[in-house]
Design a protein around this nucleic acid. Sequence first.
DNA 1: TACGTTGGACTTTTT
DNA 2: GTCCAACGTA
Length: 717
Amino acid sequence: MKITDNLNPKQLEAVQTLEGPLLILAGAGSGKTRVLTHRIAYLMYEKNVYPNNILAITFTNKAAKEMRERLEKLIKQSVDNLWVSTFHSACVRILRREIEVLGYTSNFVIYDNADQQTLIKMILKDMNLDEKKYTPRSIITQISSYKNELKSPTSAKKTAENYYDEVTCDIYEKYQTRLKENNAVDFDDIIMLVVLLFQKDKEILQKYQERFKYILVDEYQDTNTCQYMLIKLLAEKHHNLCVVGDDDQSIYGWRGADIRNILNFENDYQNTKIIKLEQNYRSTQTILDAANGVISNNSDRKSKSLWTDQSGGDKVYLHTAHDELSEANFISRKIREMSKENSLGFNSFAVLCRTTVQFRAIEDGLIRNQIPYRIIGGTKFYDRKEIKDVLAYLKILVNPADEISLKRVINTPKRGIGDTTWDHLKRHATNKNITVFEALNTPEEAGVSSRATNPIKNFKKIMDEFIILSKKTDITNLTNTILADTGYIEELEAEKTIEAATRVENIKEFLSVTLDYDTKNPGGDLETFTAEISLFTDIDNYDQNEEAISVMTIHAAKGLEFPTVFIAGLEEGIFPHIRSINSGNNTELEEERRLCYVAITRAREKLFLTNAWSRMIFGRSTSNAKSRFLDELPLELIESEARIKTKATFTKNVETQIVTKTCNSSYDVGGKVEHQKWGIGVIVSVKGSGEDAELNVAFPDLGIKKLIAKYAPISII
DNA sequence: TACGTTGGACTTTTT
DNA sequence: GTCCAACGTA
């Protein structure tokens, strides 16, 4: 069998066009991974390109793993020196070798979101800034987008438009300094630093340019400026760059992904060849029509129309439930019914949600109906407190300069080393220009209370022992020793609560991860292990063959497919998300629409859409209008039970309304407002004032709606 | 220093 | 409804 067998003409062309820039516009389900793997095989076997001259980049480890597996299956052997990896892990590999040029050392650690947050909080405290005004979360987002745009603190400050931005840039500068002092990098640094490295040291750049003669990038529509630049630098020499993507599936704009990277590819690279893959092998015609119906409402797309030879198919089923619990119930019952009738495995079903908060209700319903499920996303395994604690211990052993991890575990389990003591140690370390870890050697000099000196010395002593041990034993043994010698497990077991028992269970699971790593990488080092863990996500572990239904966010579902898909919460405010409606700009709404397109195209045969009349948000019941995306679906594709809005549903709610006192706001009880969609209504209660006011407004025939003055499209009459 | 209580603020999506 | 920071108490 030849490598090029079983490819359609377009796919074949994409596989055989090897020299020069190539843009493959691959619609959902058009055999994109197939093309990429065949292309790599073709390079190796038909053109005798060495595997180490090829670089294939994906966004998730799962995609990388899958690509490698499919390639090895195709060529019936394993390839070692071929780089198939994510942006992040490829860049970590490069940094491990070259980072010293930038003044870090090669044992750097990676800070995740929570670590970033801790560091930002420390800096805010140092700078005497109010956490309420400068929320760590928004600061981090801002810094992240600066980095994604390759802006240094100095260059960012030049574009600052107001005082707040200027302060943010100051924080950014301090943050970057502290990271370097801790010999740590955050997720964005991983890629940005490689770009800076390449720009600084042409020799290093040339080395990698020379090595990677053929570059392939998957999901190109999701690249940000920084990733774009990285690829541009690498491909500058040979121009053999093949990017695959679908502008309709660009859903990471909020993370800095710039859809223009794919839209302008042909202008960026001269003599670009464009190949469109439009035949869909996944879904029925009905599902494709539904998806096209929605996405056609977006402007600024590359024209493309998916087609399939699987005509017809079941209609899209729409169900409106009373609230989120009955929505979950409907989904669960339907799954039970269908799996029984058609003897389908539970892994044929997926429930997709816009946000993770929706998971709780869905989970409830599935448990009540005894349906095996697993949740992908939400609180991640590696985000759990106990796992982060253990990892923090390991990270200090790799890199004792890592202050964030040190602060995390210095008093976990409790040893009587509190915040005051920490402050003393930190001040002393700063004065003497040493790390806090080193300062632990001389607590007396640091001026800590006499009560704390012994605990500090004991702590330092076991940590030093762990460092020695880490050099001569495997990670499982090391972790076990840490858990025992620090008394961590003991403290948990003494608690005798269900919660503590779960934590112990989680730690055991972590130990099975370390064991797996030790077995697969004999003599493997701690640095690599901790870095790999940091870059690992829930979805990477995902096994689609497991007998359970999948509950996940639409973002997590990208790249996956299921025979039956449920999309829950199709309501204005949920999907599209309130923030995109609120932002008032069309860009964000279009991204929501693309998200909807991605969700729909996950389905192979059956698609169910659900929403609810009322839903608990923020601990209070809210009614949302049905999602605008439902109106965009061609009517003839939809099947739904006839449901009439009864007045009873709403009058029942009226009794529970409490009229609060009228504030001096312009919204008064008894007053009238006009709503863009629902017409004129009477205010029955007001809570708060001004734009923050929460109103209950009665609309004729619609009942009482809860509205937030600032978000709702209303005006006072 | 540790711990329990309380009041306030917030919830998009992730490598 | 939940998480976190701040505060007061042991």
